[in-house]
Amino acid sequence: MKNKYKKWFPYFLLTPALLYYVLFWIRPVLRAFFESMTDYDGSFSLMFFSKVINESMFTAALRNSLLFALISVMLQFTVAFMMALLLNKKFKGSNLLLFVALIPMAVPPAAVAILWKTGFSTFGWINNLLITLNLIKEPILWMTAKGYNALLFLILIDTWTVLPSVMIILLAGLQNLNKEYEEAGLIFGASRFQIIKDIIMPILKPTIITAVILRMIAAMQVWMISVMMFGYGRVPFLVERIAYYTDMVPMLKESYKMSLTYSVVVTTIVMISVMIYLRVNKKKEKEVRI
């Protein structure tokens, strides 16, 4: 009897969460899948997937979303990791520094838009600061950035907001890192860098993977900051296209199905990316449980 119970126990723990999804989330999602795979009259058809892929802005949106995710996750992970290691040292004033580091996370999205829109406008506070400090003579026209410059611009703004949220996951993970491992490394003559690379990172792997995956999923769905800074269609992203069909041209015959088909496409792309990342990591994984 006990054995049988034991086998089902993990599923038992997972069930509440899955039930929750079924109750509160799954219905509109199933509907979205249905709508994306049918024609207007309800018959099976993949024409909307074809419409999505052949859209003039699809390639640009896909490229931007993937590039944004790639660059921003690498950048944010590296900096957040350094910050977490730093704050983990628990020196004098480190908890106050932690508080400051967390502030950007608490800023609501609308405020972020105001902050950076007023900052980067021609007579905004960034140019104001640079001119007052005599670093530039004439205001820089930040907002006329196009193409890859615009993408980088958005990545930087996103990083400012998102860095603390990546950092706290890594910091929480570092709390269980046994100090003895580090000390052992130092005794055996390892450099600081080697200790990080060969001791800390492997032990921290689950946390790192979690932080990267969560960030990857969010980064591929970034859209609002592009619309707030530049407007629709100027720097397209996948989810920005969804917002376009839902909010900007809702009365077109195809809008409803297009927005849902795009949603399905995005979910698929994100899922595949995450699976690729996990597979790559599994290959490199060695059991480092001491």
């Binding site: 999602v29 969560l214 995450v274």
Partner: peptide, 29 residues
């Protein structure tokens, strides 16, 4: 906890399924 401490069939698939709610853009639904 169940994912961390137990080995069971379909574990990796189920843990990925959990994440699907974050992968589906909320805008349209």
């Amino acid at each position: 906890y169940s994912i961390a401490r137990y080995k069971f069939a379909g574990k990796s698939q189920l843990s990925l399924t959990l994440l699907v709610v974050r992968m589906f853009p909320g805008v349209a639904i």
